[in-house]
Design a binder for these strands. Structure first.
Lengths: 374, 374
DNA sequence: TTGTACGCGTTATCAA
DNA sequence: TTGATAACGCGTACAA
């Protein structure tokens, strides 16, 4: 091109030059005023006026190139449809927004190559940091994490020696809370509908379940254990398989989506909850409260983990020299109607047709639930 | 500073200069090779080698500043927890990813100032385009839309003369489909649980409902109409209020979250679905299939609208001179157990306790449902 | 084909 | 306080 600098951007929109020229000052002065540093009252007035007149808006990209920061934080989760990630996302978003940044959400579908590709793309410097919650952790992950040029915080289990900020929970203890609760309620034939065993949460829940049973001297009956996917349909199908060969008096599900699927599978074979089968889910999502009866669920503190992860990330962005930190959020059990034994009215099974239509006193299902901590 | 250009970025990472120096060529040659245009075989080899050795990754920000494109598409929806937006988001993400771009998701909480702030922020040029699905449309919206420097596509109703790409559906017809269906099934006392009337969808559904009743010569009974929020809890509460003063034989809900709330409110007063009350939701989300019994729902083609919106946006980005386009997606009704009359087995109410525990043949609830189009 | 040099729009430095 | 100018890292006319 070779021509001298224009007074407006390529698409005709105003730049600092436009404002400076209009105000009759240098671009340096214009920039200073626009950033609120320095400038004589007169200069400030002229620049502000000129900026308003032309409708100047700073170009964030140019600013980023200069400042080496984009103000974007990425979040990578497996399934954006799973309410547990929605809760986590909301908590993260709150912290991120609070800091004046924006959140970029990626759904990875749980595919390893997607996740590693995402991690590698961090090298492009389009985001200032990333929070990732992988359900599988491979060497490829660890490698990509290790040489990421921007800060990353992992939500979930990670090898002990991985030098990465990490917020985890102890799902094995969470499973134990649920088993303890069910055993205390007199249940012995406790079934377990899990997610894939080659995932980190799946494996942890499996070993946690077996250990918890052992604690109570209950022998593991493999027929009472079924594996599906961390989804509603798969959970329902898995439960149907389980029910076709065994008769549990309680059912623990690896997450709430599975638990809702299990609930419907139980309905399908006309078994009542909690009378015939006590049901406990995990993650304590909105879904557990939206089910009927409301489902007891092990809270793994998703919102808390999300919030902490975001806070850790912001801290690291502010000071990259921090040593790797590892935090743990304690699980707790929220007991609701699906496994309650104390109040039979809360655990009433859905409508039968023999009710009088006039007595329409709503029963109390909106109870917050009783929380049990480890 | 005044010092000469360094060979690596401020944080020590390699730049084109690093690669060029290492390969013994000019930055222009390095850049060309890295972009796959031109270069002698020997140069290509040297540059590729050097790039690999230093682990060069292009800086996306610098590239964006140069190219005037970021490859980011923003999506603004009210509530990321509402499955209808999840479905829409997935459809959009597919198109966006296909084009090699990334999706940035914003939750606005339905607040007008949030949305307009977001629209104005577009002026910062951080995204190449935006898809927004506002539930309220104010003058502030229209103004912000009008002078947005980057392309915007609106999903939802918009004033006729708004010069903005727009993908809508006809929810009034959708409501009519549901009412027709319920009337055909012999229902006459049709209740309606709506969202806020000061929202675009709320207002459209309300007028649609009244018009549909009129079509069938049914007089509107205000006691059968209740308004809450587009959420589960509010829907449940609203339904409880309605049930406390009236006895509908059918219930139409403004979305599936409300419908699930209504289902549980009905359970709460021991009214069976669909025997006592036929239930129809709207949006046809996963939730409708995850409920028990599965809920009939008016599909407003969220996924289709999302996909089309994304396609329109990409087209406009490619050619900004296109005239404003307006597309409409036809609603359809998916009939499931909650309002089915043909097959009583599909509509079985949830478990009673008097079942034989051994006969565990799962019943078929996973039916895709029967689709009815306008 | 290769290298020089400029521009993308902004902020920061330094001398006046 | 102000203005000229150098970066930020990249792509690309243009001339060689």
């Amino acid at each position: 091109m070779g021509r001298k600098r224009l007074q407006s951007a390529g698409d005709g929109r105003p730049t600092v030059h436009t404002v400076a020229a209009r105000a009759g000052v240098s671009i340096a002065s214009a920039s200073r005023v626009l950033n609120g540093v320095g400038g004589s009252p007169e200069t400030v007035r002229k620049v502000r006026e000129a900026a308003a007149e032309v409708g100047y808006v700073p170009n964030a990209i140019a600013r980023s190139l200069q400042s080496q920061r984009t103000g974007l934080i990425a979040l990578a989760v497996e399934d954006i449809g799973n309410p547990v990630y929605v809760a986590m996302m909301r908590a993260i978003e709150a912290v991120v927004a609070e800091s004046g940044r924006q959140l970029l959400v990626h759904a990875t579908g749980g595919q390893v190559d997607n996740e590693t590709a995402l991690l590698r793309r961090l090298a492009h410097r389009y985001v200032d940091g990333m929070i990732v919650s992988p359900i599988r952790v491979t060497d490829a992950h660890l490698e990509a994490l290790a040489d990421s040029p921007v800060p990353v915080v992992v939500v979930g289990q990670l090898p002990e020696d991985a030098p990465v900020d990490n917020v985890r929970t102890d799902s094995r203890t969470g499973v134990a809370l649920a088993v303890d609760h069910l055993v205390a309620a007199g249940r012995r034939r406790i079934g377990f509908v899990n997610g894939p065993l080659d995932t980190v949460p799946g494996a942890a829940r499996d070993s946690g379940f077996r250990a918890a049973l052992a604690t109570h001297g209950i022998e593991v009956d493999e027929r009472l254990i079924e594996v599906g996917d961390f989804q509603y349909a798969a959970g329902r199908a898995a439960t149907e398989r389980l029910l076709a060969r065994a008769l549990p008096d309680a059912l623990l599900c690896a997450n709430d989506l599975i638990a809702v699927g299990a609930l419907h599978a139980l309905y399908g074979v006309h078994r009542s909850v909690p009378q015939d089968v006590a049901l406990v889910g995990m993650d304590d999502t909105e879904l557990a409260q939206m089910a009927f009866p409301q489902i007891s669920s092990v809270s793994l503190g998703s919102a808390t983990r999300g919030r902490r992860a975001a806070e850790l990330l912001l801290e690291r962005i502010a000071d990259p020299t921090l040593p790797p930190r590892r935090e743990q959020v304690a699980p707790s059990l929220v007991v609701r109607a699906s496994s309650a034994v104390t109040s039979a009215t809360d655990a009433v099974t859905p409508a039968t047709t023999d009710v009088t239509a006039d007595a329409v006193t709503p029963t109390a299902h909106g109870l917050p639930g009783v929380e049990v901590t480890a």
